[in-house]
Design a protein around this nucleic acid. Sequence first.
DNA 1: AATGAATGAGTATTCATTCAT
DNA 2: CATGAATGAATACTCATTCAT
Lengths: 226, 226, 226, 226
Amino acid sequence: MATHRKIQPMPRKRPGQDRSRATVGTILDAAARILVKDGYDAFTTNRVAETAGVSIGSLYQYFPNKESLLGELMRRHTLAIENELEALAAPVQGPSFEHQVRTAIEQTVRAHLVDPDLHRALSETPPLGKLDWEARFAERTAARVKAVFEARRSHIVAPDLDLAVYIVLRAVEAIVHNAATERLSDLKSGVLTDEVTRLLLGYLTGKTTAAARAAPRSTASRGSHR
Amino acid sequence: MATHRKIQPMPRKRPGQDRSRATVGTILDAAARILVKDGYDAFTTNRVAETAGVSIGSLYQYFPNKESLLGELMRRHTLAIENELEALAAPVQGPSFEHQVRTAIEQTVRAHLVDPDLHRALSETPPLGKLDWEARFAERTAARVKAVFEARRSHIVAPDLDLAVYIVLRAVEAIVHNAATERLSDLKSGVLTDEVTRLLLGYLTGKTTAAARAAPRSTASRGSHR
Amino acid sequence: MATHRKIQPMPRKRPGQDRSRATVGTILDAAARILVKDGYDAFTTNRVAETAGVSIGSLYQYFPNKESLLGELMRRHTLAIENELEALAAPVQGPSFEHQVRTAIEQTVRAHLVDPDLHRALSETPPLGKLDWEARFAERTAARVKAVFEARRSHIVAPDLDLAVYIVLRAVEAIVHNAATERLSDLKSGVLTDEVTRLLLGYLTGKTTAAARAAPRSTASRGSHR
Amino acid sequence: MATHRKIQPMPRKRPGQDRSRATVGTILDAAARILVKDGYDAFTTNRVAETAGVSIGSLYQYFPNKESLLGELMRRHTLAIENELEALAAPVQGPSFEHQVRTAIEQTVRAHLVDPDLHRALSETPPLGKLDWEARFAERTAARVKAVFEARRSHIVAPDLDLAVYIVLRAVEAIVHNAATERLSDLKSGVLTDEVTRLLLGYLTGKTTAAARAAPRSTASRGSHR
DNA sequence: AATGAATGAGTATTCATTCAT
DNA sequence: CATGAATGAATACTCATTCAT
């Protein structure tokens, strides 16, 4: 398989002209298509170039090696996802804790619906030598969540906040991620969001709010449960 | 001919003789060692044979292709794990629901401690075309869990039992699996088991049982928040 | 299309304009720098163009192919060297044969000190299909040396003048060339010149001239052994 | 050109069986043939394998990389040559200094006649990261020559023995090496040997022996000149 | 004239698999 | 049964060269 190697994160040549930018786009599209449809084994530089209708020479003009191509694919996807999550940045002032939790989960769900196939394909890729931005993304996320928890410290029964963050993040990520391929309809219908909200609230606050059970994802009556 | 993708899961030849069985064992041991120590990239048939002190010819006597070798490795590991889980088979008569849940989680944890390195190595392996036994294992597990839930139907607030099973299994698996590499000490100390137990009970029963708070490893009084 | 082998030694275009001449110069400088610093492997047309701050398009405007670029580099270096050797052109009237020989060697040494690094780099280059000017240079040199020998025919004991010229040229070239990288200090101090002078005179005249022993750099009396 | 790299001096697999040995031989023969006939540019692993009538797989079974193939080619050639030179090992007790010198030159000539084409082809190869045995060979040679000179110290007029060894070795090597392609007939006839002998003796002893001039390479009358 | 995007044949090397001994 | 020599399609990547703008 001859996988990872150097890591040289970005395009060899800043796509200055329009033609360049177009070529880069074509290549990345082809790369994504192959990865999704045929898996990492079929993801060869020659095949990508051919599918993109471009010579390998051109591919290597913009991506110094296979790794960088995959890396850029990830970077773009992560970027697209992060757009869906911006609301998380200022969540403390939300009306209620439950609302915050639900919102966060909804964001996560939306994130996984951006391009579920690519998301899955990327996640099945061999570990890419821990890209730094990947680690930084994880850290930022954990920090945000922790901040919210701290703001609601009194509501939270979990003894160890860090551990709680860890558990919550893993659980939500795993459930949503898997559901994106195995239970797509539940993901889209919001049923899964309801359930995961209950899962987290129960764990964090020590009690299931009546509202959660009675009025799933209803916009109304959200101030009632304190 | 670097092809793969031929799924033919089992040995070409039933290892009837003792010598055969020994050879197979040697090969599998070598395979596991390589996979764990040097990753999938180093996992080549020639290297496995050499490490095992066996000719590739012999390796191919027992494993028709690379895939089958990896498959057998998984099968054996799964088997070893399933031994830890047998208690789950007849759990209904356990003293309390909480006890059952906690026991199940403890089993999962133990399962992940069987050979964590191999476990991780196997999980980083390229997807092996959904082996049927893998699917069957998942089904069996889901069925068991569902049976328990049904026996305790009245205690459970989750509206959709199947969905609840799904959520619970993904969450537990993900948390424990990740913790096996990222939070090993918490896994071993039992802290994580406590928390996951709370996570599940809160979700399933709609309230945090006093027992959970007074339970084995919880050191202190968390009575402040009702 | 990594082809090479197309010998077409000179620029596509007589650099008529000043700008052209400047560009050609820049390119050749970059080429020399790369060849010296990083060797022939790094000597790629793209790299040369980039280092020169010129587009490959422009490079190919002046040099029809890689070979011609390298060829021109050699031609220029040889030219520079030949300037050091002009005195050889009219050497017959020199005071003594020994003096002539010594002078010729000194010139050769100076020639190798013109740009020793480039000289060495060029000599480690893959053989460039015997450029014609290269052959002509060799012929001219041989002719000059032979003329001197003929003028001193009576002093020379070697039976075959042509062979003597051949031997002398190879020997001097090899010694000086190697010394330029392996014994640079001896080259510069003149010790090597002394010795090579003795080498040639002994061979050509059949005796070590007293002068050679008493010559410039010889410190002592070596008269003991006659 | 993508030349040198690791250096891993010997075959990957000791040719135990006859078949192996034969294959290795075939490959090396093909390699030599290509190098001689078409030069280093044509010396590609695929071409060598094809010419040898062997799959590249087989080639790489015995030579871990291109470098090692070229290296082995050199090693074998050097070995073959060194056989011609063994007499040099015990030269001190030779009848006369002249005889010793002549013998050494004859050996050098014979060495270059072992396979002149291959010799030349190898010498035009890119540097190959100074193989250690190459350096050791040079050292051994220098040491031998110096030992002879020291044994004859009183006959030698050269002030610096080490420098004399250096000059002598470069000169002889260069003359003989070039003559092997440019003056093969002189090399074979012995005329060149005569001349080079005179070159060295004149330089080293300060006088041309009458015998050398009167009786070139005649077997007789070699004791006469002391 | 100058630019630089595009080309694609070619290069070294790997590795799953076969089969004669 | 075992061996290990042999296979060859496939891979990542390079670089001299062309040509539309």
